[in-house]
Amino acid sequence: MEQNKRKDLKIAFDMTFMQFGWSTWMIGIVLLLFISLQIFTDFKIVLNDEEAAFQGFIHFIENPYKIFMLVVGILSVPKFLSWFVKTGITRKDYFTGAAIAALTLSAIFMIIAVIIGGIEQLIAPVNFVTYLGEGASWFLIFLVYTLNIFVYYLAGWLIGAGNYRYSGWGLLLYIPGALALIFMMDLLWTNQLDTPLHSMLSLDASENLSLFISFGVSIVLIGISLWVIRVTTKRVRVKL
């Protein structure tokens, strides 16, 4: 048992390291783009105050992070599961390792974003706003964004696993599943959407309770996604 544990942690470490390596290009390019935009564009002229407040780095890199995670998630089963099983690692150890690695990577991404966001505040303080509201603490921002980035990996992982196990037909079921997951997370966290579910969640609940519900439902959604991925890959035949 102890050896198992060490193995999945080793997988987690190796996968985090490798996937982070791939992401350095993306982060570098986004950062460069962000800095150039700050220097060459005066947002106060182009945008109104409200829009300008959304131009912080954290907001800027959120979508690149998510797209990166989606793509890496799709590759997870065909690239990593296949390699690990062929190297003599169980599907279970791969699964645990990959899940820990995805969460760790999401956290690392947000630590980087928060640090750059902090530096940005020191250089040119703006009235910083995220979809968590004006008064949201840095810690809350870190936590919620990490969770949302992680969910994009899960969405990709679902699609990759479904396609690997059931070929083209799997996509008919797993892509809508992944989209549903992303859509539900959007409902839970961004205040911009006005949907029945969203208004129901925040209608007569205090702000704290709504946050509590959002976290609770997110955890359940993540749990279900992880369960589906595990069931899909538990006995999957590895392609030669």
């Binding site: 050896q3 193995k7 099983v85 690692i89 279970k92 150890d93 035949r237 590895v238 030669l240």
Partner: peptide
């Protein structure tokens, strides 16, 4: 591929040193 745990047999069993082989972490790495 069954001996290497790349797939699980549809029927029957494979044992190594008296233990089921598929997804057995200790045996698979050997």
């Amino acid at each position: 591929s069954l001996l290497a745990s790349f797939a699980k047999p549809d029927e029957g069993s494979i044992q190594m040193n008296g233990q089921p082989l598929f997804e057995n972490a200790e045996l698979m790495q050997r």
